[in-house]
Design a protein around this nucleic acid. Structure first.
Length: 95
DNA sequence: CGTATGACGTGCA
DNA sequence: GTGCACGCCATAC
């Protein structure tokens, strides 16, 4: 099953996300080579227990924060610390 | 191997 | 603008 590469790619891509920037689940899947597997991206990150992966920088296409296995507010807190503006669980600005 | 799931996305009322 | 239902593909059991 080469799909394993997909997961590893997702991890690597998410880890390559620069500070202050965010990528959508679909974008990550696209970079992983499976733009149709953005569904699994969220699940992979959900099962991800690796703190080395800034999964909090992965958001919805709708700029929604989405979720976080460490806590929804935790993700918002981290993003805000990165300089992003979160409004009602949505990214107001990326500058 | 098959079934169920999931941090989603899109469409329609 | 909000809410519900379907689809979609990899992962977990």
């Amino acid at each position: 099953m080469k799909q394993k590469d997909f997961k590893e790619k997702v991890y690597k891509i998410v880890k390559q996300i620069p500070k202050g920037e965010v990528l959508s689940y679909k974008k990550v899947a696209e970079k992983a080579g499976e733009s149709r597997a953005w569904r699994s991206v969220g699940k992979i990150l959900a099962k991800n227990k690796n703190p080395q992966i800034p999964c909090h920088r992965v958001v919805r296409l709708d700029a929604g924060v989405g979720g976080y296995n460490k806590g929804f507010q935790k993700k918002i807190f981290l993003l805000k610390k990165e300089g992003l503006i979160i409004k009602k669980g949505k990214i107001k600005s990326s500058f």
